[in-house]
Design a protein around this nucleic acid. Structure first.
Length: 648
RNA sequence: GCCAAUGUAGCUCAGUAGGUCAGAGCAGCUGAUUUGUAAUCAGCUGGUCGGGGGUUCGAAUCCCUCCAUUGGCUCCA
C-alpha cells in the first residue's frame, strides 16, 4: 500500500500502482469524467500512469492551466495524426500547448497549405477524436528513439533527440501517430469534443531565421461545444476593441501610404488625448524633480559611434542622411540618451548636483521590419516619454525605486490592473551580445532584483532579454486579443557614462563616473495610447476624454439656448461640443453615444424655460435635469476626485 | 525580411466557370420635417474595383510583379 496526500493534506491509502484516473474514480464518477491530468509530487503526469510510491497529488481539470495544457497538448498530437493522414510524408517539428490552444510546426515538403485546408484538417481531427484512441506512454533508449525517427525520415525529431541528454526518452503513441514527447496526455482522444483549426503561419525551425521555415498550424479545442462558441464570441468582442478599428472610428489617428508605413498621423482628437497624457506625466515628473530638455531629431553619426549604437544597429537602421556640400553624415535619432549625455556634459557636475534627471518627450525613428508593423503598437516613428537619470552609484537604488513609484502611480491612475513585471537579464552564454564589464552587469542586475522585491512586485526573471547595454525592468500589459506589449521600462546603464566619459566631482575632490538610468513610464505615447484604447474600449476616463460633453438641442428652436449652454460650459473649461444637425433627438443620442462622449446634454422647451439641461451619462442613461453651473461643478469634482483619490 | 491571406466609394461590405457588374447601407450634399432619451423621409454627389504589366475580341474577375494591410515567425536600442 502507498500513501497519497491530497491538496487539503488528507492522506489516503491505495495499493501501489494505482493511477490518477482510478483515484479520481474513487472520489466520484463526475470527477473521473472531468479530470484531465494529475500532479504527482509537483510533476505533471498522465492519469493512466501508475503511481508506485507515496506521493502528494493534485488532480487537474479544465479549470486549471495544467488541465488545459494536457488537453491542448493532446490536441496537438491529434492534429498531427490528422496531418499525417491527410499529407503522407509530412515531417514534424514541435507541437506544444500555448496560452490559448496549441500549434504544430510541420514540414510539408512542396505542398503549401491555404486556409481552405484548415477545414479538412478540422474534419479529420473530429473523425480521429471520435475513435477514442488511447494515448500510450512508452520509455525508450535514446539510441532506440534516434533509430525510430531516422527510419521515419523525421529529421527534426532526430535533431531534437540528439540534443537530449542520454538516458530514457519518452514516446507517446495514439492511433497511428507516435511522437517524441514528455507528456502528459489525456487517457484518450474522446474528451476532445470541439475543435477549431485557427490559422497558418510560417515559423523558422527552432526560431532561427537562417534555418528552414516550417508551416505552423494553430488550433484550439474544448471539451464542450459551448466553450468553443464562447471563445469565438470572445474573439469577436475583442476585435471590436482593437485600437486600429477604434482609432479610425473615433478619429484619433490614421496612416497614409504617401507619408509612409509605420508613421502615424495623430488626428485632432487623438492629439488632444495624447497631450493630456503628456501634461499629466509632466506634472508628475515636475513633482519628482525632473528637468525638461529638448533635443533635435537628428544627430551626427559620430554621436552614435560614440554611444555604440552605430556599431550595434547601424546596418539595420534608417541610413545616414548627408549634407550636400560637406558630405557629413547624420542619423535620424533612434534614441534620446546620447543627446542627453551631451547635455549632462555641457558643464561640470558636482556630487551635490546629482541626481540630474533630464526628461523629454523625444520622437525617435527606428527601422522596424515591414512585417512587424502593427497599428500604433509597433511603428517606425514614435515618441518616448523618455528621461535619463544621472546619479551616483549609491543613489541607484533610491532612484530606481522612485521610478517604479511613478510607473505604478500612472498605472493606478489609468486603472491598469493587470500588468506583468519582467526583469530582463543578460544571457551569460552569449557575452558578445552585450557591452560593458561583467562587474557592472552583476551590480546592476543585483540592484534591480533587490528593488523589485522590496517594492513587492512579482518580477518574472527572463534570461537573455536584457538590452545590450544593461539589464532592465519592464512593465507589460496585454492588448484586446491577449498579445503582450511592453509599456513602461526602467534600465540601468553603466555603459554610456563610460563611453561619453561622463564625470562628476566627488566630495573627495576626485573625478567619478555617474550611473545612468533610462526610464519611460508610458514607454511610447503611441503604444500607450493603443493599449489605453483597448482597455477602455474607447470610453476614456473623463479627465482624458477628448470631448467631455455635447449639447443636443431637441430642435432648431432651441439652438440659441443650446449655444448659451455650450459657451458657459466651455468657459468653465469643460470640453463641450454641440450637435446642431437637423436630426431627431434619438438619432443625436445614438450617434454621440457611439462617439463615446461621456455626457450628453439635452435641451428643449422645458430646459430653456427652467434654465437647465437634461444630463445623460454614458452607459447610465438619463440623470435628470440640473443647472449648467451645477453640471460644471459636478464634472470638475469628478475629474479632480479621480486624480486626488489616487494621490492619497 | 520570411510564410499565409486580404485589398471594390470616406466607412462596412455585395458583386468572381471573364461579357449592361461597377452595386447596397452608413457618412456627405440638397430639400421636406421641428422632432423629448440609441437610426424621420425623399433626391443627389462619390470608385481609372491598391499600382503597373500581361493573357483575351473583352479583365474588378485569369497570370506576373510591385505596394499596402491582416495573422504568425524572426527582430525590437
Amino acid at each position: 500500500m502507498i500513501q497519497i496526500t491530497f491538496p487539503d493534506q488528507r492522506i489516503k491509502e491505495f495499493s501501489a500502482g494505482i493511477t490518477g484516473l482510478e483515484i479520481a474514480q474513487s472520489i466520484s464518477p463526475q470527477l473521473a469524467k472531468d479530470v484531465l491530468a494529475i500532479s504527482v509530487n509537483g510533476e505533471i503526469w498522465d492519469l493512466t500512469r501508475p503511481i508506485t510510491a507515496d506521493a502528494a497529488i493534485r488532480l487537474h481539470k479544465w479549470d486549471d492551466t495544467e488541465g488545459k495544457h494536457a488537453f491542448w497538448h493532446s490536441s496537438a498530437h491529434l492534429m498531427a495524426e490528422a496531418l499525417q493522414n491527410l499529407y503522407p510524408g509530412v515531417k514534424f517539428g514541435i507541437g506544444p500547448a500555448i496560452e490559448s490552444g496549441f500549434y504544430y510546426d510541420v514540414d510539408l515538403g512542396d505542398k503549401s497549405l491555404s486556409e481552405n485546408d484548415l477545414l479538412d484538417i478540422e474534419k479529420k481531427m473530429y473523425e480521429l477524436a471520435s475513435m477514442k484512441s488511447p494515448f500510450n506512454r512508452e520509455d525508450i533508449s535514446k539510441s532506440g528513439a534516434l533509430e525510430l525517427f531516422q527510419t521515419k525520415g523525421d529529421e527534426y525529431k532526430t535533431e531534437l533527440i540528439s540534443d537530449l541528454a542520454d538516458g530514457t526518452i519518452t514516446l507517446y503513441k495514439h492511433g497511428s501517430f507516435t511522437d517524441l514527447c514528455r507528456g502528459p496526455h489525456l487517457p484518450d482522444t474522446s474528451p476532445i469534443k470541439a475543435i477549431k483549426v485557427l490559422s497558418l503561419a510560417g515559423a523558422y525551425w527552432r526560431g532561427d531565421e537562417k534555418r528552414k521555415q516550417l508551416t505552423r498550424i494553430y488550433g484550439i479545442t474544448f471539451p464542450k461545444k459551448s466553450l468553443l462558441d464562447e471563445y469565438l464570441i470572445l474573439l469577436e468582442e475583442a476585435k471590436k476593441r482593437d485600437h486600429r478599428k477604434l482609432g479610425k472610428e473615433l478619429e484619433l489617428f490614421t496612416f497614409s501610404q504617401r507619408v509612409g508605413q509605420g508613421l502615424p498621423l495623430w488626428l485632432p482628437r487623438g492629439a488632444m488625448l495624447r497631450e493630456r497624457l503628456e501634461n499629466f506625466l509632466k506634472k508628475v515628473q515636475k513633482d519628482y524633480g525632473y528637468d525638461p530638455v529638448i533635443t533635435p531629431h537628428i544627430g551626427s553619426k559620430e554621436l552614435y559611434v560614440t554611444s555604440g549604437h552605430y556599431a550595434k544597429y547601424g546596418k539595420d537602421s534608417f541610413q545616414p542622411i548627408h549634407t550636400p556640400v560637406e558630405g557629413e553624415e547624420f542619423l535620424l535619432k533612434p534614441m534620446n540618451c546620447p543627446h542627453h549625455c551631451e547635455i549632462y556634459r555641457s558643464k561640470p557636475r558636482s556630487y551635490k548636483d546629482l541626481p540630474v534627471r533630464l526628461a523629454e518627450f523625444g520622437t525617435v525613428y527606428r527601422y522596424e521590419q515591414s512585417g512587424e508593423l502593427h497599428g500604433l503598437t509597433r511603428v517606425r516613428g514614435f515618441t518616448q516619454d523618455d528621461a535619463h537619470i544621472f546619479c551616483r552609484p549609491d543613489q541607484i537604488k533610491e532612484e530606481f525605486a522612485k521610478v517604479i513609484d511613478i510607473v505604478l502611480y500612472i498605472f493606478k491612475t489609468l486603472d491598469f490592473k493587470e500588468f506583468i513585471t519582467q526583469i530582463s537579464l543578460r544571457d551569460p552564454n552569449t557575452p558578445d551580445k552585450y557591452i560593458g564589464s561583467d562587474e557592472n552587469w552583476e551590480k546592476a542586475e543585483k540592484a534591480i532584483i533587490e528593488i523589485t522585491n522590496e517594492k513587492g512586485l512579482e518580477g518574472q526573471i527572463v534570461i537573455g532579454e536584457a538590452a545590450f547595454y544593461g539589464p532592465k525592468l519592464d512593465f507589460m500589459v496585454k492588448d484586446a486579443i491577449g498579445r503582450k506589449w511592453q509599456l513602461g521600462t526602467i534600465q540601468v546603464d553603466y555603459n554610456l557614462p563610460e563611453r561619453f566619459e561622463l564625470e562628476y566631482i566627488g566630495q573627495d575632490n576626485q573625478r567619478h563616473r555617474p550611473v545612468m538610468i533610462h526610464r519611460a513610464p508610458f514607454g511610447s505615447m503611441e503604444r500607450f495610447v493603443a493599449v489605453l484604447i483597448e482597455h477602455t474600449a474607447g470610453k476614456f476616463p473623463l479627465w482624458l476624454a477628448p470631448d467631455q460633453a455635447i449639447v443636443l438641442p431637441i430642435s432648431e428652436k432651441y439652438q440659441n439656448y443650446a449655444e448659451s449652454v455650450l459657451k458657459s460650459l466651455n468657459n468653465c473649461d469643460i470640453r463641450t461640443l454641440i450637435d446642431d444637425r437637423n436630426e431627431k433627438i434619438g438619432k443625436k443620442i445614438r450617434d454621440n453615444e457611439l462617439r463615446r462622449i461621456p455626457y450628453l446634454l439635452i435641451v428643449g422647451e422645458k430646459e430653456e424655460m427652467e434654465g437647465t439641461i437634461s444630463v445623460r451619462k454614458q452607459g447610465q442613461g438619463d440623470m435628470g435635469s440640473m443647472k449648467p453651473e451645477d453640471f460644471a461643478t459636478m464634472i470638475r469634482k469628478e475629474t479632480e476626485e479621480v486624480l486626488k483619490r489616487i494621490e492619497d
